[in-house]
Nucleic acid binder design. Structure first.
Length: 338
DNA sequence: TACATTTGACCTAT
DNA sequence: ATAGGTCAAATGTA
């Protein structure tokens, strides 16, 4: 039991730190993306509140600052939680071992899930009904809010959507694509929770026990020690993606899955993207490729009619922002105006 | 044709 | 009783 607690604690801390690293890399990406954008567009100065601004700088910052601030908070929370767990004395009971970190910062310890947490063969958040149907518990393994849908490196298959009582947005249900071939129990649900600025909440249930994550032609074997927050890279053979017409020097290309394409169209209308400049490779495995939106005048701040089917087109107004963060279902895309 | 998504029905926790 | 999670047949897409 001692050993199990130790492993569980290590796993929790690891997950927390990985999450923190994930957030730090997202923050870095946001800052680098903005920096690149600023350096590429320094001709559109205007005046606002008696100050001279660059259009893209100004509007881009207005969008990104709250996101960047949130990321900083999440990094800090990651450290705080890790320290909290480290400083939690292991008792004979397994209380305070497992925990959930919610988007509002609450840390909820849940001893009931501890055993499963270190297990690779079952999910702590799934159980069978008498009808042998799988049904997840109402408490997510973890969840996060983001103004864009963050790619989590796993392949997902959508299996349902619902309108819920307290939201005007559709809730989408996904299960791991490896549910059938590897029995992976992980699921997630994604729902937009606010508009202006848009905010999406992704709740993860259970843990992946699948081994492969595919980007492009490559299959990367995932270490079991990585949690949902882990990302894995695919290094292609320098063949640019068929959508990629940029002269970037990237060596990392990501092809969105059907789910990604769908989610993009669902959240923002059926549009085509081209990827650009894919990557920030640090010592970490984390990334979010940058994309350039093919069409002009896309307004990120608009949202689709929640009642529209995902395949229906959504009309967007001419954009209010100089450049836009778009969703490529988790691949952070930056809409660019020519 | 194979595989992914859509969507209404079904099931169950509350 | 009902809100929400899942199933599975129908449909879409490459």
């Amino acid at each position: 039991m001692e050993n199990q607690n130790s492993r569980g604690r290590k796993a929790i801390i690891e997950q927390e730190l990985l999450r923190g690293r994930d957030m730090a890399n997202q923050l870095l990406e946001v800052l680098v993306a903005h920096n690149n954008k600023s350096s590429n567009n320094n001709n559109n100065h205007h005046h606002y509140l008696n100050r001279s601004y660059d259009d893209d700088d100004d509007k881009g910052l207005m969008v990104l600052l709250p996101y960047a601030e949130d990321l900083v908070h999440q990094v800090l929370r990651s450290f705080t939680n890790s320290l909290l767990i480290l400083n939690t004395t292991t008792t004979t009971k397994s209380d305070a071992i497992d925990h959930d970190v919610f988007s509002d910062g609450r840390v909820v310890f849940d001893s009931a899930k501890f055993r499963d947490f270190s297990s690779t063969t079952s999910s702590p958040s799934l159980h069978h009904t008498n009808n042998n149907r799988l049904r997840k518990s109402s408490v997510p393994t973890w969840e996060k809010d983001s103004p864009i849908l963050i790619e989590d490196g796993h392949e997902w298959r959508k299996y349902g959507q619902k309108m819920t009582m307290n939201s005007k947005y559709l809730r989408n249900y996904y299960r791991c694509s490896h549910k059938n071939d590897q029995g992976c129990p992980a699921t997630k649900k994604v729902q937009q929770i606010q508009d202006n600025p848009p905010l999406f909440r992704t709740s993860y249930f259970g843990h992946h026990n699948c081994k492969s994550i595919t980007y492009n032609e490559e299959t990367i074997l995932a270490s079991e020690s990585f949690s949902e927050s882990s990302m894995f890279l695919s290094f292609n053979n320098n063949n640019n993606n068929n959508n990629n017409n940029n002269n970037n020097n990237s060596n990392v290309i990501i092809t969105p899955s059907k789910e990604h394409q769908f989610s993009s169209s669902q959240a923002f209308g059926s549009k085509n993207f081209i990827s650009q400049n894919q990557l920030l490779l640090s010592s970490s495995d984390y990334y979010h490729p940058l994309c350039v939106y093919e069409e002009l005048g896309f307004d990120y701040s608009r949202h689709h009619d929640p009642m529209l089917s995902s395949t229906e087109k959504v009309q967007f107004d001419n954009n209010a922002l100089g450049w836009d963060l778009l969703d490529y279902d988790g691949l952070a895309c930056y809409g660019q105006q020519n």
